[in-house]
Design a protein around this nucleic acid. Structure first.
Lengths: 246, 246
DNA sequence: GCTGTTTAGACGTCTAGACGACTAAGCCTG
DNA sequence: CAGGCTTAGTCGTCTAGACGTCTAAACAGC
């Protein structure tokens, strides 16, 4: 037999039809072709457009509906959910600005704060040697009380002595860094991956355990280019979508 | 036309076929016909047995799988999930015994503990006047770290002065009651209802918000028949099922 | 005996068609 | 014009059949 199964023209290999329809619609929501609260084409129209059976479209819409991206109303139609956030990963996007742009109220909770020794990953991100002391903060970000992101932040303690105390006493992250002469910082690199959530993560983010987590890894630098933070953030899909703006 | 739509013989009115198959299988899991970890009949067998198309069986199994009651493995078969707990509501069933019977390790967290005035519901349950002081405890029950129940307990403060302090200092509920001369107690009445969870409840119990919560309301009495506690417990379905043993 | 292949049987995807249930809008009647 | 009825359009359920993918056991060959 042949090495790879043949696919009909226009068919992505190794991806089921209904999944590719899910991705197509997710894409249109992300790029604004479909707007929050707006109507999706009817199942029959989508079936014609993707040249598939209506059942296959239904399978895709069911998936979108399950994920919360789409709301289906019998006898009326399907609609794009209103509460989808798409996070524009611009170099200076801050959590609170992002949330406020969606007319929601940002807040957050520090879940953990401690000093620790850098392992290889952290040390690599911050450009330190393994074992160097870092300040670690884990934070749950909320938009109108709804969890939208879980982030771990690592700061080089040598550069910011006293940061731990400032954060412990309730300072926000931007705020605390400003105290140490870093009024502004930007993302130097961002790496995005995805994986399934740990039970704790799924619980904190109030997401199903079988949906992937978007994971971004950032290195933030001050205006002089010195590394001030290494961070890993996790977002629940598809409630949160990341949008790259080059 | 006729008043009610005609149904084929053996068909429940107003219930879709796939839902009735879901209920049938849930029932067999609850009554032990299907055991945790055991195999379900194949889709084809179920289709024959319920006299429906295989797709209809698949729709039912998808629902069960989504709820966590059944695990599907391609090429192997479908299996009853191992971590389903069925709580036998016997008069003296204690949380920890119940969990241990499932070979899991019981634990719990007190979420809230305070003295408060009884409202009409609580006063009614405890046989007190409205406004009487009660001790309130809210507790999250865990089995092997997995949340299985959320319970609110109300005790008459007049009968148990110092209970608040004992509980605050870490005593378990049975333990604390034993200190006040109530070594044993039993359920006098149990009322079971169901409703959708509040966001906080869903989060604490790590359950989807669109699945119902089983709510039991208990009045516990000591061997002399005096009321010692009024409690409301909430369990995530279908992970937890309540079984009545008359 | 071990290993690689074949094959039966299980779930997964997709198509096709029919009819039911629900919604909203148009129509009809008084 | 108001109220009820009809109807078109939409999603929901169910059947029927075909073929793909995956698993595990049977089998064949060395």
């Amino acid at each position: 037999m042949d090495d790879i199964a043949m696919n009909p023209p226009g068919r992505e290999p190794g991806v089921t039809l209904w999944r590719s329809i899910v991705r197509a619609i997710e894409g249109e929501i992300a790029d604004g072709t479909l707007v929050p609260g707006g109507r999706l084409p009817t199942e029959a129209q989508l079936a014609t457009r993707f040249a598939v059976n209506r059942h296959t479209v239904r399978r895709a819409i069911e998936e979108l509906s399950r994920g919360g991206l789409v709301r289906v109303e019998q006898g009326r139609g399907s609609f794009v959910a209103e509460d989808v956030l798409d996070y524009a990963i611009a170099p200076r996007t801050r959590f609170s600005e992002w949330i406020r742009r969606h007319n929601k109220e940002p807040s957050g909770t520090v879940l953990e704060l401690r000093e620790m020794a850098a392992d290889q990953t952290i040390a690599g991100g911050l450009g330190l040697r393994v074992g160097a002391k870092v300040v670690f903060v884990e934070r749950l970000g909320l938009a109108d009380e709804r969890p939208v992101g879980l982030s771990a932040h690592y700061f080089p303690q040598a550069r910011f002595p006293g940061l731990y105390v400032a954060l412990r006493d309730g300072a926000g992250i931007s705020e605390a860094l400003a105290l140490f002469g870093v009024p502004d910082y930007r993302r130097q690199t961002t790496r995005v991956t995805a994986r399934l959530p740990q039970p704790t993560e799924a619980s904190l983010l109030r997401m199903p355990r079988n949906r992937p987590l978007l994971v971004t890894e950032n290195i933030n630098v001050d205006p002089e280019g010195r590394i001030v933070e290494y961070g890993v953030s996790r977002y629940p899909t598809p409630r949160v979508q990341l949008v790259f703006e080059p």
